[in-house]
Simulated assay, not measured.
Amino acid sequence: MNSECNLAQALAAAQTLGLDRLDAQLLLLHVLGKAGADRAWLLAHDGDLLPDELAQQYRQLSLRRAAGEPLAYIVGSKEFFGMTLQVDARVLVPRPDTETLVEWALQQLASKDMPASARVLDLGTGSGAIALALKKTRPDLDVTAVDASAEALAVARANSGKHGLPIHFILGNWFENVSGHFNLIVSNPPYVASIDSHLAALRHEPLEALTAGEDGLNDLRRIIEQAPAHLHPQGWLLLEHGYHQAQAVCGLLSQRGLADVQSRADLAGIARCSGGRWPGEPAGDGQTADNQALISGF
């Protein structure tokens, strides 16, 4: 890429580095200061010259993408459930699969058994994607988001402020520092086995947010074991998990005493989420006082 490079030539050069056409287009739009939805503009202006400074910037970003760095980290944002969320290497990139969990949660929250101002807990919130999607769709919800990483919470808090969606944030590992009871608990926890060969392709993302023991179920086990102590009677626990883990997760839910255990499939037809209803009184002492460890909303 040089000062005589036009947009079509720049895109072709990026593809020779190994980028697919969509990534090449989105990176070029980012360099040009345009939205990702402006791909048609590129086609209409493919003969426009790309200034040398921007051409060099585009090449550097293309090399980063060719080395496997997620596109979202390079451009600093990711679309999720109709929102543009800030993301960087402090958090996982929100996946479209997780929208399945959000949609299921909204279905449960719309049931006649749920109060209008239901209390929702999002465990391992990361960028805040799930919590913010629920709050955006249902502003009447009382949403609390937890993460063990202060850096991840900083990202989630920034997204909360950007979208004007007040969320309570707690710094803690799963239910640590959480008190009171909730009508719905949702989580997209780490579920990749520590020996999984696919981890090499995810080397740019935070490992602690990906892996959970040799079978990938360690964090799911812990959440399922502890969740009843924080659920109102008839409250739901909904969990995202790996493509092959539905049977194991449903077994853990049933063993813990949850009822109506079931799974939901993503757009590819893969059972991606499982959950169940807590039928009885909260397990354990389940303090009802408001949590004193809440970090300011936004």
Score class of each variant (00 low, 15 high):
R256N: 07
N183S: 14
A229K: 01
L237G: 07
L207S: 09
G18D: 06
S160H: 00
Q234H: 11
L202D: 10
F81D: 11
K135C: 09
D142A: 14
A14F: 05
L239E: 06
N183I: 00
Q107V: 14
N291A: 14
P282G: 05
L220T: 12
I195M: 04
I270Q: 12
E79Q: 15
S254W: 02
R157P: 00
A8R: 15
N183A: 13
L121F: 05
L49V: 14
C250D: 11
D140L: 13
L220E: 06
H181K: 12
V87C: 07
G251M: 01
R64G: 07
D215A: 03
H241W: 02
G126F: 08
D147M: 03
H168I: 00
D142T: 13
E208P: 00
R272C: 10
L22M: 11
T137P: 02
K34F: 07
W41L: 11
S187D: 04
G161M: 06
A116F: 01
L123A: 04
L220W: 05
L202R: 13
V93W: 09
I185G: 07
L28T: 02
G128K: 00
L50D: 10
L220V: 14
L294C: 10
S111G: 11
H181G: 05
L199M: 15
N218W: 02
L134I: 08
D285K: 13
G251S: 14
K112F: 05
G280A: 11
L92V: 04
A293Y: 15
R221C: 13
I224D: 04
S187H: 11
H241L: 03
G269E: 11
L267T: 04
A283H: 12
G68N: 06
L11H: 10
V178S: 05
S62Y: 02
H244I: 04
W41V: 09
D122M: 03
E79F: 01
T288H: 11
T98Y: 05
L258S: 04
Q60I: 00
L43W: 13
L153K: 10
I167W: 02
A259Q: 15
G280D: 12
R90L: 08
L42F: 04
E79P: 00
H244L: 08
L207E: 15
R272T: 10
D140W: 03
L7P: 02
A13T: 03
T100C: 13
P70H: 10
R59I: 06
D215T: 11
G213H: 01
G124P: 02
A158T: 14
A72W: 03
R138D: 03
A24T: 08
G33T: 11
F298E: 06
L106R: 08
E208I: 15
G126A: 07
R39L: 03
A66P: 05
V31H: 06
A259V: 04
A158G: 13
E240F: 09
L19F: 09
A271N: 15
A193G: 15
W278K: 12
D122V: 07
Q108T: 07
P206C: 09
Q247I: 03
R95P: 03
F298H: 05
D266K: 09
A293S: 12
W236Y: 14
L19Q: 06
